[in-house]
């Protein structure tokens, strides 16, 4: 998967390239709009990450020029959280719009979502090690033992299993499980994960849910 980053701020550009490369993407970085348009015309990318406020040619112009040639997803980065800018960006065909300062984890999650869009496969049964979740029967077993979960605990585990191996941020978990899209400055998600762990992990030897400090949670074999 190839990603083109067009970003004039050196530090931001560097860490984005480094982070995304380490996540396994092929990344090119253009530090000016002109270079960016040039690269986008010459190479084939799966996604462009574009800073809206660039000197010389601005992001709006760049997206217009690139879109004349290729139709590929674009994530806008902007320092201004202006409703009009957001609307303008989305109307111009931005697939996502992130306001600086954003967390890298959030960006990575969105990149993954966009690149995977259309390929998501809903399954009825999820399994990892000896943990099994049956969506239709609303039943969770581990090592053959049935675990009684509340509705929200079940939804949380479902989310973690559906995205096993991925790190999920607290914001994302709150949004998907409880439909709460605001930062409540609380540890609601931590408490919920703690209770889930007490039921799913604690009684069994192997831990599956891991905490990535200050980032979020993931469910994987190497927890």
């Amino acid at each position: 998967m190839a990603i083109l980053i067009i970003e004039d701020d050196p530090k931001t550009g560097d860490y984005l390239r480094k982070g995304l490369r380490e996540s396994g993407y092929a990344v090119d970085l253009a530090r000016t709009g002109t270079d960016g348009v040039h690269l986008a015309m010459q190479q084939v990318y799966d996604l462009i990450i574009l800073d809206v406020m660039l000197p010389a040619i601005d992001g709006w112009e760049i997206i217009r020029r690139i879109r004349e040639q290729h139709d590929l997803p674009v994530i806008f980065l902007s320092a201004r959280d202006d409703v009009n800018d957001r609307i303008r960006g989305l109307r111009l065909g931005a697939d996502d719009y992130l306001v600086k300062p954003f967390s890298f984890v959030e960006l990575e999650l969105r990149v993954r979502t966009i690149l995977r869009r259309g390929l998501t496969r809903e399954s009825d049964v999820f399994e990892i090690a000896d943990l099994r979740l049956d969506v239709l029967r609303r039943k969770v077993t581990r090592d053959g033992v049935e675990i009684a979960l509340t509705n929200k605990e079940f939804m949380l585990l479902h989310l973690l299993m559906k995205r096993q191996g991925e790190v999920l941020s607290r914001t994302q978990i709150a949004s998907e499980v409880w439909d709460m899209n605001f930062d409540s400055d609380t540890n609601v998600v931590d408490v919920a994960v703690k209770r889930l762990r007490a039921k799913v992990d604690a009684p069994f030897g192997r831990k599956l849910i891991s905490t990535i400090r200050s980032v979020g949670y993931s469910l994987s074999l190497d927890a």
């Binding site: 409880w178 609380t186 540890n187 408490v191």
Partner: peptide, 13 residues
């Protein structure tokens, strides 16, 4: 109810 649901765990603490 939705809001209470969200904060239930925190309240139980």
């Amino acid at each position: 109810h939705k809001i209470a649901d969200y904060f239930e765990g925190l309240a139980l603490e």
